[in-house]
């Protein structure tokens, strides 16, 4: 579980959520005057790297699905669409693989971007220049022309596949995304708040961190992982107590045998080894039984993710070694006490 969680936390999302703040646009004034406000902020706040906005933001607002036709064909394709403003790709650090970005100028020609997944989904060999439109809408001015292809990026959790997406220029979207210099983060946020309070005085300034927003997609897994960890610790404690009890009972029951063996020439080390070996075999047996069960259960759980880790063989080896070590530590002290006792006392039993 931890491996899957680490995988999700470290996986390349196709965009860089760190150091990006998302500010919801709450007034028409800001929506309509965004470009001027953006220029002013970039000029006056040195800690801002880039600013853009979008209709949906990964982890904040889901994109919507629409039906499109391709190159005049009658076949329709469901694609997820997203409106973006100038500099969205560079602000989010989404890679433009081929073609060019959408902007105010080419928007009038119906310029759109497709992600790689959409190119595969539409089976486009030469995506640049491909024409998409809405079914039933034959107006040429409503055609969408593919201007560029961007890398895939995650918009949802890892339990669903990356969606085929179409991104179009939309200067009226409601989520500002601001990439901030990490070294001046706090100061920059304060300055953004000051500016924002001036342009949206009737609304309190609100912002979220994009990386934390996106982390919500695996918060359930994080909770589950923590819960499992607590229960694992609890079960290990209970198992250790039982094992300790068993070791205590066993060494008490075998006190006389230990004494006999020592009288006949066994050293303390040999008697310790004899008793410990028995617990070692029991632990090994339980470990071997647990392997296929654990593999099955973990595989089942991992199957709920589209993007998942494979269970490495060494995890079994490591877990088994740790389990064996804990078991031996638990029983050793008790067995050692029995092993080093004077056989004269043991034989009185």
């Amino acid at each position: 579980m931890l491996l899957q969680l680490q995988y999700m936390q470290k996986k390349d999302l196709g965009f860089q959520p760190e150091q990006v703040v998302v500010v919801p646009i709450q007034t028409d004034y800001v929506t309509e005057n965004f470009h001027e406000i953006k220029e002013e902020m970039l000029r006056t706040i040195p800690g801002i790297v880039r600013i853009s906005r979008g209709s949906s933001i990964p982890g904040v607002m889901e994109s919507q699905q629409g039906i499109y036709k391709l190159n005049g064909s009658e076949i329709t394709y469901p694609l997820w669409y997203m409106g973006i403003d100038d500099d969205f790709l560079s602000t989010m650090e989404i890679e433009l693989i081929s073609g060019s970005d959408v902007n105010y100028d080419n928007a009038r020609e119906g310029a759109v971007l497709l992600n790689k997944r959409a190119v595969e989904f539409l089976e486009l060999k030469n995506p640049i220049g491909a024409v998409l439109n809405f079914p039933g809408d034959v107006r040429k001015e409503n055609n969408f022309v593919v201007k560029g292809v961007i890398d895939n990026f995650h918009t949802d959790g890892f339990d669903s596949e990356i969606k085929p997406m179409i991104l179009y220029y939309d200067p009226m979207t409601w989520f500002a995304v601001i990439r901030v210099e990490p070294s001046e983060f706090e100061t920059t946020i304060q300055q953004i708040e000051n500016t924002w309070s001036q342009v949206e005085p009737s609304h309190p300034f609100r912002f979220t961190h994009l990386d934390k927003d996106f982390a919500k997609v695996y918060i359930e897994e994080q909770r589950l992982s923590k819960l499992f960890m607590y229960f694992t610790i609890l079960s290990i404690c209970i198992a250790c107590m039982s094992l300790f009890g068993l070791a205590l009972y066993n060494s008490e029951m075998r006190t006389k045998e230990i004494g006999i063996r020592k009288v006949l020439g066994a050293s303390s080390w040999q008697t310790w080894l004899l008793l410990t070996k028995e617990f070692g075999y029991l632990t090994l047996l339980s470990i071997i039984i647990s392997w296929p069960l654990t593999y099955y259960a973990m595989n089942k759980w991992l199957d709920t993710f589209v993007y998942r880790v494979e269970i490495p063989w060494w995890i079994f080896l490591t877990a088994s070694t740790v389990a064996l070590f804990i078991a031996l530590i638990t029983v050793s002290a008790q067995i050692l006490r029995a092993s080093i006792s004077n056989p004269v006392h043991s034989l009185r039993y």
């Binding site: 020592k262 009288v263 006949l264 020439g265 066994a266 050293s267 303390s268 080390w269 040999q270 080093i340």
Partner: peptide
């Protein structure tokens, strides 16, 4: 302890 065990044996 081990030497004693050896001599006993």
């Amino acid at each position: 302890e081990s030497k004693s065990a050896y001599y006993r044996n």
